[in-house]
Write a protein that binds this DNA or RNA. Structure first.
Length: 961
RNA sequence: GGCGCUGUGGCCCAACUGGGAGAGGCGGCGGUCUGAGGGGCCGCAGGUUGCAGGUUCGACUCCUGUCAGCGCCA
């Protein structure tokens, strides 16, 4: 295993004074890092504003092609990086450097996503203010990353906890708060325009009164139904153990908190929400404009879960229950109905006593329906949505005692409540079609409910569902048993039947076609200290007021105690209290919001830590703009739509797949709102997305299965041994808990940053996970040593390149390398780019001397991958400027191919001869040559030639009969 | 359970997208140099492309099924 002490590593075993060793690498690297920093080498000019070039030097920035390259910014962890963390940062740096050398104005920087739970928990544990520990973690991380030679524009780095940054996070919140979604225009508009419609009577107030007759609180209540950011009593995931509510996505599949693993309960609480559902369609359709991996697009589509179906009204006594169904075609098969336990009509429809024919299994062992419903509700409330669906195999529910009427058959059907129906999906009520829905089938079986087959089975089973093992669920059949009053679906395909029945329902006014989403509105408030405060206050009547822009930022106040107010983790009846409410002096303020100084109470919730990452790409573009979020000219230049990117956005965004839905969906949503309101010209934030894989590492476990320190394991006779005992090896995530973390610092010390960069890039394709192999790192180091040795004498330190012209074979090797490496770098195929550079370098080693005309392009091609050694060699070759902006070599097409290629002649797919031919040879000539070849003639013999397939210049295949 | 990704020398991975199975690195073996248990240079070996079918003149590549690993959703 690798040692971390520089003196003992292979890199130090030398006696040559000018050999490329770890010590020399360290010297070169720190010198160039200082130079880049001092000279601002990677500063990217803006068209306008503080970062625009000085008038004297600046050409028109906007005429230069741009390249905006971005990493998913990190959370600054206090524990330091391992070699897996910077993989993406190195990749984007290589790509950015390549782009710079091909004439692009490159924006590449890195900020910090610094609000969040870990800092707060650290603060609670140690008493150190989160800002202090976070700033220290950022400084530490900056130091670690600086050593890697990343070419970032440090002027553009942001931190989400900087009040000058979150001023604009709050500003965007206000924009969203002050907007509503106009479904006619299909875009967000300022809420003032909606108010004007109400005031002018163009739009009716829901309860029919005049707008002017409403009190301020009543108006606010009306507007709350429209605002894109709104506060409302909603069923939420309440986690007493953490003392906060959680978004669905922060709750694990078994109904516990992702962080801390505490139980999560359903509770109805007043919370801030973001109306992301208004954008459901656009978030799906605009995916088509993006250059993203299909897998991620698919995950987003699934997450949004758009389904077309119908709403159908079912009469229940004097009431009407509306259900949503994706299969209105199966309406004739609806033999019972299920409401979510929380459904508002449940109490209204429950009769005083069980109907006489009620089966005992339906009663939940209760004497009256009301009693059964109450007991069942209490049990359901203690479960999360996820748990309720998880438990779906064991069907539970009770009969409400009420009957609905199936609108097509006119028959009464029993109404149940069951927790497999969720209040948040659709209307919270379903028509159950047990014959053609798996969950309904299981429920019907459990409760002995009737079933009716209405879709013709195509797999040979009979038409009596009671004899089936499971529901028959397909779109690929026709309807049966579906004739009713004025409508017949028999013989129609599922798709046609859907349309027909939906029209029939609409004609009768008891239903309509509708679209439903799995996506729900985004829970946007948390009961935490370390997050962005809301720019919202409440007056003495409890009416909400947005603070004016001039009062931003609302800074995170000092409090005595940062800790969340937590409860017994099992106490479902507790309710959240916010840490910010502890600071009474901050909460109670006197402000003049336009009608004189009055007393207000501040909103004490904070934003979730997705907020800061929803828009940081915009601030990178114009980090110092005091007047605006981003200047339109700068936004248009870096992010604006153009022929290559129709929706605009960052040119390349690299990050882990774990953010496939949440971060990327939220950021897209905010961006679209800002676009609708005219603040940005781009429609999407990230044009091209690339997911880098993970660097895994070997995990060694002892006989008990506990991980042992990977660095201390030795390989003996093909097995692995730690402190004399045998251990097993597997691949796993790199990290402290598995005792297998390797720090970038240790690799830098042992070999240098260039070796680390090169190794990480050569391990394999960027998008697949692969294990860190400590012993293999030396291969990248040896390559750099050979490169160095090809150009610099290890004995004298003098440049040893020759001024002789290169021979043709060398030139061909060079131009093939140029051609290949260009394509590989542009396509993010860094592993093959490295291989081609090594190949060319090996050619030079064999050749024995290095012509300058090959040395220079080779150094330039290595520069994006190993920039420090390249800069040093470039300087030694006599250049005085950094090569950061030198032109990347261009291949001569005539030299980028081999002088002669070997053509394979096959007979019926088997190789029989090889011909050496010029690469330009035509099909006809090649066919003649092949058929004339003695070996081919012999192999064909007397057999007739039926067909000859020619793929010049590489292959001829002769098919004989 | 559903969807997606990945299976190629001992290991990490290439293969111009349907055309000779091998570019590069690690490891192994042999030779050679050296300030000699470390490194340089030169060379070598290693295969039923996870498995079973299919399409094709031709399949690592496309299709079907299946197994394994990983990811997402249930």
């Amino acid at each position: 295993m690798s040692e971390t002490t520089p003196a003992s590593g292979p890199a130090e075993a030398t006696t040559e004074p000018f050999r490329y060793t770890a010590a020399l690498a360290a010297d070169i690297e720190s010198r160039w890092q200082d130079t880049w920093e001092k000279e601002g080498t990677f500063n990217a000019p803006n068209p306008v504003g503080p970062l625009a070039p000085q008038a004297a030097t600046g050409g028109a920035v906007s005429e230069k092609p741009h390249s905006f390259i971005m990493d998913m910014f990190p959370y600054p962890s206090g524990v330091g990086l391992h070699v897996g963390h910077p993989l993406g940062y190195i990749a984007t740096d290589v790509y950015a450097r390549y782009q710079r050398m091909t004439g692009h104005n490159v924006l590449h920087t890195l900020g910090y996503d610094a609000f969040g739970l870990p800092a707060e928990q650290h603060a609670v544990a140690t008493g150190v203010h989160p800002r202090v520990s976070t700033d220290a973690a950022i400084a530490n991380m900056r130091g670690q990353l600086r050593r890697l030679g990343l070419g970032h524009d440090s002027r553009r780095s942001i931190s989400t906890i900087d009040p000058e940054y979150y001023r604009w996070t709050q500003w965007i919140f206000l924009q969203i708060f002050d907007s509503w979604y106009d479904t006619d225009a299909d875009k967000a508009r300022p809420i003032a325009e909606l108010i004007a419609q109400f005031a002018a009577g163009e739009r009716a107030v829901p309860d029919g009164r005049a707008w002017a007759a409403l009190s301020a609180a009543e108006r606010e209540e009306v507007l709350g139904e429209y605002r894109l950011a709104y506060s409302k009593e909603v069923p939420v995931n309440w986690c007493p153990g953490l003392g906060t509510v959680l978004a669905n996505e922060e709750v694990t599949a078994d109904g516990r908190s992702e962080r801390g693993n505490f139980p999560v309960f359903k509770s109805k609480l007043r919370q801030w929400m973001m109306r992301i559902t208004a954008y459901g369609d656009r978030l799906i359709s605009d995916l088509d404009l993006l250059d993203w991996p299909e897998a991620i697009k698919l995950q987003q589509r699934n997450w949004i879960g758009r389904s077309e179906g119908a709403r159908v009204d079912f009469p229940v006594g004097d009431h009407t229950v509306t259900v949503f169904t994706t299969r209105p075609d199966t309406l004739f098969g609806a033999t019972y109905m299920v409401l979510a336990p929380e459904h508002e009509l449940v109490d209204a429809i429950v009769p005083a006593a069980w109907p006489s024919e009620t089966l005992n299994d339906w009663k939940g062992e209760a004497h009256t329906p009301a009693e059964a419903v109450a007991a069942y509700r209490a049990a359901a409330a203690a479960k999360s949505d996820v748990e309720r669906q998880m438990d779906a195999k064991v069907k539970t529910g009770v009969f409400t005692g009420a009957y609905a009427t199936n609108p097509v058959t006119g028959k009464p059907i029993p109404v149940f409540i069951a927790d497999y129906v969720l209040m948040g999906y659709g209307t919270g009520a379903i028509m159950a079609v047990p014959a053609h829905d798996h969950r309904d089938f299981a429920f019907a079986r459990a409760f002995n409910l009737p079933m009716q087959c209405v879709v013709q089975p195509t797999d040979g089973r009979g038409t009596d569902p009671h004899e089936w093992d499971d529901a028959f669920d397909t779109y690929d059949s026709v309807l049966v048993n579906s004739v009713g009053d004025g409508v017949s679906l028999d013989g129609l395909t599922v798709t046609d039947a859907k349309r027909t029945v939906t029209e029939w329902l609409a004609g009768r006014g008891i239903g309509e076609g509708t679209v439903n989403y799995r996506l729900r509105d985004w829970l946007f408030s948390r009961q935490r200290y370390w997050g962005e405060p809301f720019p919202i206050v409440y007056d003495e009547d409890g009416v909400m007021h947005a603070l004016p822009e001039s009062m931003l930022p609302v800074e995170v106040p000092e409090v005595d105690d940062y800790s969340p107010i937590t409860f017994d983790p099992e106490d479902a009846t507790s309710s959240p209290r916010t840490p910010l409410s502890r600071n009474e002096a901050w909460v109670n303020v006197e402000l003049d919001l336009g009608d004189g100084v009055k007393r207000y109470r501040r909103e004490t919730n904070t934003m979730p830590n997705w907020a800061g990452s929803c828009w940081y790409e915009l601030r990178y573009v114009d980090p110092d703009n005091r007047a605006k979020l981003v200047d339109p000219a700068n936004e248009a230049y870096w992010l604006g739509p153009n022929a290559e990117k129709k929706a605009g956005g960052v040119d390349l965004y690299v990050g882990g797949q774990e953010h496939a839905v949440l971060h990327l969906l939220y950021a897209r949503f905010w961006h679209k709102v800002l676009h609708d309101l005219g603040h940005v010209s781009s429609v999407e934030p990230f044009h091209r997305l690339f997911n880098q894989g993970m660097i895994t590492a070997y995990v060694y476990r002892d006989e008990r299965g506990f991980p042992v320190p990977a660095a201390e394991v030795e390989e003996v006779d093909g097995g692995y041994v730690w402190q004399g005992q045998p251990v097993t090896r597997e691949a796993g995530k790199m990290g402290k808990s598995l005792k297998n973390a390797v720090s970038p610092d240790s690799i830098c010390e042992e070999y240098g940053a260039d070796t680390l960069r090169l190794y990480e890039m050569s391990m394999g394709p960027l998008d697949v996970s692969r294990p860190w192999e400590p012993r293999a790192v030396v291969g990248s180091f040896r390559f750099l040593q050979r490169l160095w040795r090809n150009i610099v004498s290890e004995k004298t330190g003098e440049v040893v390149v020759t001024d002789e012209p290169a021979d043709e074979a060398t030139l061909r090797a060079l131009h093939k390398a140029i051609d290949g490496i260009r394509g590989d770098l542009a396509g993010l195929r860094f592993n093959t780019a490295v291989a081609k550079a090594i190949e060319l370098n090996n050619h030079l080693v064999k050749r024995g001397s290095t012509p300058r005309e090959v040395a220079e392009p080779l150094v330039l091609m290595v520069a994006p991958l190993a920039p420090h050694i390249a800069e040093e060699l470039w300087r030694k070759l006599g250049h005085t400027d950094s090569l950061a902006y030198a032109d990347f070599p261009v291949a001569d097409p005539a030299l980028a191919v081999d002088e002669a290629v070997v053509c394979v002649v096959q007979i019926k797919g088997k190789v029989k001869a090889r011909l050496e031919v010029p690469p330009t040879i035509g099909d006809a000539e090649l066919e003649q040559l092949a058929l004339a070849d003695p070996a081919v003639v012999a192999a064909i013999g007397d057999a007739p030639v039926r067909k000859v397939i020619v793929r010049a210049p590489k292959l001829v295949n002769i098919v004989t009969g």
